[in-house]
Design a protein around this nucleic acid. Sequence first.
DNA 1: GTGTTAGTATACCGAACGGTATAGTATTTG
DNA 2: CAAATACTATACCGTTCGGTATACTAACAC
Lengths: 191, 191
Amino acid sequence: MEPKDNRASILTCALELFAAQGYDAIGVREICSAAGVTKPTLYHYFGSKRGVLETLVQERGAPLLARVQQAAAYAGDLRQTLRTLVLTYFGFADAAPTFYRLLLGLWFAAPNHDAFQVVARFNEQQHQVMEALFNAAAHDHGNMRGRQRIYAATFLGMINTYVGLALNGYLELTETHALQAVQQFSYGIYS
Amino acid sequence: MEPKDNRASILTCALELFAAQGYDAIGVREICSAAGVTKPTLYHYFGSKRGVLETLVQERGAPLLARVQQAAAYAGDLRQTLRTLVLTYFGFADAAPTFYRLLLGLWFAAPNHDAFQVVARFNEQQHQVMEALFNAAAHDHGNMRGRQRIYAATFLGMINTYVGLALNGYLELTETHALQAVQQFSYGIYS
DNA sequence: GTGTTAGTATACCGAACGGTATAGTATTTG
DNA sequence: CAAATACTATACCGTTCGGTATACTAACAC
């Protein structure tokens, strides 16, 4: 029997419930009862319902961001870097589907919504990484210049689309799909 | 002064509020006060809050579905059909950005959520249209066979991604982008 | 032992939620 | 004119919401 860690089990239960039912549809009470604690415990650790979501995004998102940052290092071969990136994302989504579902559920959510803004900041961080990559690549590929922002956005969008469709049972995150996606995307750039 | 149509103004206000703040974040009271009516009026026309959303999706979505169905007619030139489709979607999103925002906000929302299921049915209808198109095209392009479902899903996903990024200010829905998107997508198919 | 701190539970707060019972008005139908 | 239908307002229902005041326990500090 592992020593009970209320903080951790609150986060785990909240993630599962948020991902399945939506942030707004889940009350603090449900999280607490699922985690086997009472409300003051949750508020002791996170201060508010939004604090739970923020902690969740930060802590569970950090590994993804770290891997992505590493995979996004540009070494002269853009296509290869993109391949590594897609595989990194697919691997993460495969290992943490519930968390990715939470992110995707708020990807295009209402802009004035509390929960959206939390996730938007996280997405913006990923966007920065991608934009830096395309900026670096634009030195070698002059015809890309001026479009780095769009490339970053559509590349991330393509990844999220694939993951979202996979989560909804439309396809699977195979290496074949990853490579095909990169090939497709690259064709749009170099042409 | 137009003759006041309470039913219509409820729908209009609900759409605006849902799209901006999210379905769950908006109460029936807010819709009513924005529309200048009281709750029994709303419940007279729509029966429930969910009924408002359902009506919204059906009535505002019908024109899109009609245009898409027409544009998806296959006449031997898949690439041209896809071009027409993307332009149809872009045109609709440009004319009804608020409604499209509502759809996108629930695109990958939590699967057990009330609002998601309403939109999911609508998305499924579009998916059927796309799948039929790729089924027809697979007669001419044997190498597509068996992948029609994936093609339909990723094609719609690509469109939604572009529209979503446009709504969030990352790009604009120009004809150039539309053609580029199709070219990209087609390359993934024929290769 | 005496504070002090971290963590947890009971019980409660006011506000907002979705929805409705009742009563009215205005228009149409006989 | 009477009856029925469509629509709208006042006022209310019970429930749940996010959040908290208070108190208690265990552990560690001095």
